[in-house]
């Protein structure tokens, strides 16, 4: 991208933003150039992650949350991630379907992303897409993960505020005390609150929070009820996002989170780059040969890895 395109990106021109995100997804030199050109202008947006199991209503909730911010005049960028097929490499990106209320509004930019083989609930380029939206002046960036299981917790490293969305009847109090996704919530939202079992779900989540030893000045995630299809409870949720932001600022935790995020991103990129460099130096036939030997139990997998690296 030339400097003119970067200027357009910073002005929020949708074409420039869209192209930049595509470049990020492709990766390589042009992605790096863009990051180099824009990184100084990032770090301003409040990044809000929205995660939870498939079908809990994440996209519909994102749609409603975005509408609230728009009423306040804040510009909203949205990155919505859906899974790539491990078989065909294709994907159905269907989150946008739930966000039609936002169309025709220049203050909103929605981008759907496929995971393209990445684990953890996000695509490899999601954090770079967020950088683009941040640099383009979107004050709130909402990142919707894939329908998450128990262990898709990448979002917590990428967002300032993480919302975990539950639906009534999705699990008992044992599910609530398990490690993983339940631990990363800054806000817990029980969506579809017009359904049965909502009070049981809320009670299970509250019980889990009560079990956590209290430290001074700790943030206790609120357990909120919403009905995203009608917008009920969403104003309250947006209020709580603001409270969480204020809490982070008052306790200088934004800096702590930012450093953790930078460290995680740095490590990830080093890993990716080392892997790429290593594989460039190895011919595919050697890997195939090792795979054969491992399968035939002639070589153990650690020894095979050693032969590749060493």
């Amino acid at each position: 991208m030339n400097s003119d395109a970067i200027a357009q990106l910073r002005a929020g021109n949708p074409r420039a933003v869209a192209r930049a995100i595509s470049a990020m997804e492709r990766g390589g030199a042009s992605a790096r150039e863009i990051v180099t050109a824009i990184f100084r202008y990032t770090g301003r947006a409040h990044i809000v992650g929205v995660t939870g199991a498939p079908g809990t209503g994440k996209s519909t909730l994102v749609n409603e949350i975005a509408k609230h911010y728009r009423r306040r005049g804040q510009r909203v960028g949205i990155v919505a991630v859906d899974p790539t097929s491990p078989f065909s490499g294709g994907a159905i990106l269907g989150d946008r379907l739930r966000m039609q209320d936002l169309s025709g509004d220049d203050g909103v930019f929605i981008r759907s992303m496929a995971t393209r083989g990445a684990f953890g609930g996000l695509a490899a380029a999601t954090s770079d897409a967020v950088k683009v939206l941040d640099a383009a002046g979107f004050e709130i960036v909402l990142v919707e993960t894939v329908g998450a299981g128990q262990n898709e917790v990448e979002i917590a490293r990428n967002a300032h505020t993480t919302i975990v969305v539950e639906a009534p009847g999705m699990g008992d109090d044992i599910q609530a005390i398990k490690a993983g996704i339940m631990e990363i919530a800054d806000l817990l939202i029980v969506n579809k609150a017009d359904r049965d079992e909502v009070s049981a779900t809320v009670a299970a989540l509250e019980m889990n929070l009560n079990l956590k030893p209290k430290a001074e000045n700790d943030w206790r995630p609120p357990v909120l009820k919403t009905i995203a299809t009608t917008g009920e409870g969403v104003a309250d949720a947006v209020e709580w996002i603001g409270k969480h932001r204020a809490y982070l600022e008052a306790n200088h935790l934004l800096e702590v989170r930012e450093r953790a995020r930078c460290r995680a991103e740095l490590e990830l990129i080093v890993q990716r780059e080392l892997m790429a460099r290593l594989l460039r130096g190895v011919n595919g036939a050697k890997i195939e040969m090792l795979v054969e030997q491992i399968a035939a139990r002639e070589v153990d997998v650690y020894a095979a890895a050693e032969r590749l690296i060493g």
Binding site: A18, L93, R96, Q100, S103, I110, S112
Partner: peptide, 24 residues
């Protein structure tokens, strides 16, 4: 093997063009 952005029914020409632009 394609990435399909599915926006479904009742799309206006404006919505279609906007989605095509943002989704590149």
């Amino acid at each position: 093997g394609m990435e399909v952005i599915y926006t479904g029914i009742r799309q206006t020409p404006e919505m279609i063009a906007e989605a095509a632009l943002q989704e590149d």
